[in-house]
Structure formats: C-alpha cells, structure tokens
C-alpha cells in the first residue's frame, strides 16, 4: 500500500513540469509564476504570426521525417540480421551499432562538427543534422524492431519460398505485413526523438535553426516565455498523440505475432 502511494507521488514528480505547461500557456500574464492572471489565447495567436518559427518548424519536420525513414531502414537491416545466422563478431558489431544509445550526445555532436567543417571543409545545413539524427535514432529503431522480428516464425517465410515465391517476394508478402506495426512504431519514435533533439542540432545547424534551437534562443528573452509555453503545450499534445499511436501499433504487432505483452518500448 505504501508502495502504491510512493508510485503515485513519483508519477506526480514525473508529470509536474508537463502539467504546468498548459496552465502558463493560457495565463494572461507575461511572467511565468503564480498567481495566475486570467485566461487568454493570445500566446497561441502570436505563434501563428511568427515567420521565423514557421521556418524552424519546417526544418525540424523535414529533418525528422528523413531521419525517421533512414533510421528505420537501418534498424530493419540490423533487426532482420539479428534473427538470422550467427557469425563470429556479430555481437560486437551489433554492440557498436547500439553505442549511440549510451554515448553522450555532445560527443557525437562535436566529433561530427570536426569532420564536416574542419576535415571535409563543407558547410553545415539540414543534411548534417539528418545524418547525426539517423545515427542516434537507429539504436531505438533496432530495439523496437528486434521485438517485431524476433517474434516472427521463420518457417512462414520458408513456406512461402517452398510455394514458389522468391526470397524478396516472401519477405514482402509474408514478413513485411507481420512486422508492419513495428515499423510504424519505429518511425513514430524516431520522428519524435529527432523533432525534440537539441544538443546535436545546436552544434550542427547552419544558418537555419531547427525548432528546439529556435526555442533555445527564445528562452533568453523573458517576454517571449509565454509564447514558448504555448508552443510547448502544442508539442506535448502532439508527442502524446504520436506515442499513443506508436504504443497501439506496438501492441497490435505483438497481437499479430500471437504473443503476450511484456510491456515497454525499450
């Protein structure tokens, strides 16, 4: 019983910052503090008329979509290989691909910055962020897709090949539909990670900032804070929507494979 009380207190601790977001986003006062001043939708209106923000959102969406697609493709290769033959060094290789999961992001950021700007002499842009985000999203995709691929019965694909399908045909017609929910879940998670990633984007963005980099700039101006709260409210609502979709997809995938849910993304 006391454990349950502790668990609820812990959830309050986890949700405290998020709950405050909409409260201040609709608060009719430019200072982010209690007592509240009244209700307004002014800050949301200001979001709609800020051109720089729209550009940043556009950048972030492009980066997130491309990174999610690339990372999911790479993740599928690794997850699929994970279910196939063992060979010496396979564990080491997989471990290396998963490394960005525990590597501090600043290390990834500065090392890529050095290579792109100093070694290759290229200028930064959205493409540098896409490359880096693909790298850090891939381990998450692998973790999700491993679940989907490992639950699969390999004999179904073999049956399709015995019945005359090519290797690719068997994969496309039998395996792909079965792992589809996992793929959607992987796309959504990597999209969310990329959209929210700040440290790498801060180092690697050129002249056009991504949305988190733009928000970082706003945080220095006290009179812009209510607008940040409004933007944050929209982002949180959007993330919760995407994550709920990802979770539904993940569960559907497990149900399709005829397994019981063991919980959790990771």
């Amino acid at each position: 019983m006391s454990l349950r009380i502790y668990a609820i207190a812990y959830l309050i601790f986890l949700y405290a910052p998020i709950v405050l977001l909409p409260i201040f986003a609709f608060n009719d006062g430019s200072i982010i503090a209690f007592p509240l001043q009244g209700f307004t939708t002014q800050w949301f209106g200001e979001l709609a008329t800020t051109a720089a923000l729209h550009e940043a959102v556009g950048n972030s969406l492009t980066i997130a979509v491309v990174s999610a697609l690339l990372a999911t493709c790479l993740g599928m290769c690794a997850a699929r290989a994970g279910t196939m033959a063992e060979f010496p060094g396979k564990r080491g290789i997989t471990g290396f691909i998963m490394l960005p999961l525990v590597l501090p992001e600043i290390i990834v950021a500065v090392s890529l910055l050095v290579v792109v700007v100093r070694v290759m002499g290229l200028s930064l842009g959205n493409w540098t962020i896409i490359l880096a985000h693909t790298l850090i999203c891939t381990p998450f995709c692998i973790a999700i897709l491993n679940g989907a691929f490992q639950n699969l019965d390999r004999s179904m694909e073999e049956a399709a090949m015995d019945l005359g399908q090519s290797r690719w045909g068997a994969f496309r017609l039998v395996t792909l539909p079965l792992v589809a929910p996992g793929i959607v879940s992987s796309l959504l998670i990597s999209f969310t990670i990329s959209l929210d990633e700040f440290i790498i984007a801060f180092f690697l963005s050129g002249n056009s900032p991504t949305m988190p980099v733009y928000i970082w700039g706003l945080l220095r101006f006290p009179d812009k804070l209510p607008v940040v709260m409004a933007l944050g409210t929209i982002l949180v609502a959007l993330s919760i929507l995407l994550l709920t979709l990802a979770e539904i997809m993940r569960r559907r995938g497990l149900a399709r494979a005829g397994l019981k849910d063991t919980g959790g993304f990771l």
Partner: peptide, 12 residues
Amino acid sequence: ITIPFWTSYLIR
C-alpha cells in the same frame, strides 16, 4: 512512466 521522457526536453 515513459511519456514525460519523450516530451520536449528543453521546455521540461
């Protein structure tokens, strides 16, 4: 438990 982790890091 995982939801707050995925929502805007900077703003959090």
